[in-house]
Structure formats: C-alpha cells, structure tokens
Design a protein around this nucleic acid. Structure first.
Lengths: 127, 127
DNA sequence: TGACTATTACACCGTATCGTGTAATAGTCA
DNA sequence: TGACTATTACACGATACGGTGTAATAGTCA
C-alpha cells in the first residue's frame, strides 16, 4: 500500500526516453486539472465518496464528476465499488496523495512570500 | 532554496478550494507533458543546458524546445541566463525534481508488477 | 412489477495545447 | 560593419480536453 518511494535519484538515471516520459506524464495529467485535484483531495480526506457526494462537495454536475472519475479510474488512480444505489470511489494509487501533498506545498512556499526576480540572471524564489 | 516539504497532511486540510486547486494544478501541468518531462529531466541531470543542447538531446526542433521552456519560465519552473550566444536554462523550482522523482517511481512500481489493494472489491492491478 | 434514484454513455461545442514554419531579434566574431 | 549563429516571436492547423445536455442503464423499494 505504501511504496511510492524513489528507486534511483534523477541524476543517476539516463535521460528519460520518449516512451517512459509518456507514461510518467499520465500520472501528472491526472493531477493537472483543478476539478480532478478537488475530487482527489475530497476522496483522500474522507476515504470514500459517491458521485453525488462529490458533486455536492464541489458544486459541479454529476456528469462532470462522473466523467473525471472515469478518466481517473481508467488509469487506476481511483477504484470503484458499488453499495446499493451508489457507486463509491476511493483513491487507490499510493503515489497520488504523496504527489498532491508535495504539489500543494509548492504554493504554500510561494505564499510564504518572497519571489525575487533577479535582474541579470535567474529568477528565483528566496525562502 | 530547498524546502518543498509538506506543511499540513492532506487529511488535516479543509477541502481544497477552486482557486487553490487552480494554482496547484499549474505545477502539475508543467509535468503533464512528455516533452516537458524530458526537458526537465535533462536540466536536472546536468544542471544547465542551452536550447540547442536540449534540442539535440531530445531530437526536437529548437522552436518546440523554446516554446516549452518559455511556458516553464513563465511559471518560474525554469530560469534563464545568457552566456554569449546561448541562453542557458536550469530548473529553479525546488519542488519539480521532487515531484518528478516521485512520479517516475510510480511507473517503476507498476513495472515491478506489484500493487495489490483493497478487501472491498475495488479494481486493482495485478502484474 | 413499476415508480423512482443514482450513475453512466455519448455526442456536441468551445477552448486550450502542441508542434511546425516563417520571420524577426540578439549576440558573436572576423 | 557585415556575415553568421542561437534564440525567440508569432500565426497556423491539428488534436485533445472539459463541461453540458440528453438519453440510457443499473439498482432500490413499495
């Protein structure tokens, strides 16, 4: 269940090939949209939710939710289970919470302030 | 410069708002394309490269590279520096290497076959 | 069984993205 | 200065994505 630990540091790996990059990009695509981020966070927070629940939480239509969940299920980011009338979804990809947490902290850092544009050289964040 | 450490666990945070999600999604978008992944990995590996170098390494046209670098620079993922004829780029966002490493391990896991989940009958990968 | 609810399938359209090609710009060196 | 190289600006066309609406499906309960 846990896992999602780096195997080799990036610098030790040969340049990522086109095919590998294609595959890695898939997991990032799943996180590259606000709606999906919100769905995933909601699912991570409470572990399991129905399409209707998610629609309520996010204020979107069930079709939109269902569409996105379907995309996420296709790539095995979320899993589905039926309980009576409802279809319950949950996050099954252990990397996703880790990535979301890291990605989120990115804007936390940014909000903490600072962000200096260096005139002559690199633009950079100074913490 | 380092940082990129989670501040609060995801479950402890209130559901991410639309605006926050929009902002978080930006960093993931930068990683959600094979070309950009390859550029970023190349830059992380050797620290600093020109547009031409990157074109050589990836086998793409300089225009395509330049376009992508521009996108990455707009959101401060990469920084730019001139050295004579060349424009040298490097990754300046400390979260990006972390995220790439984590995302990459995702397919490593998958390749290893593993990934068993869930008593309740969720969909699962079995290698 | 039949009314009802929750979810999904599917087509549609507006929009964003990506790579390319052409032209322009910035910088180097003789 | 002028030939040359590296990079960028910009517009174009193809493609993929996202949300909506309508219709269909799966399941529940009286």
């Amino acid at each position: 269940m846990e896992s999602c630990r780096p195997k080799l540091p990036l610098v030790a790996r040969p340049l990522i090939g086109a095919l590998e990059a294609e595959r890695v990009s898939i997991i990032f695509k799943s996180l590259a949209h606000p709606t999906r981020l919100r769905l995933l966070h909601a699912l991570i927070r409470v572990d399991e939710l129905s399409v209707g629940d998610l629609a309520d939480e996010t204020g979107m239509t069930v079709q939109a939710i269902s569409n996105q969940l379907q995309r996420l299920a296709e790539i095995s980011v979320v899993g589905k289970r039926r309980d009576g009338l409802q279809a319950l979804y949950r996050v099954i990809d252990p990397c996703v919470p880790v990535l979301l947490e890291r990605g989120w902290c990115h804007i936390d850092e940014f909000d903490k302030g600072v962000d200096v544009e260096v005139p002559g050289g690199l633009s950079m964040n100074v913490g």
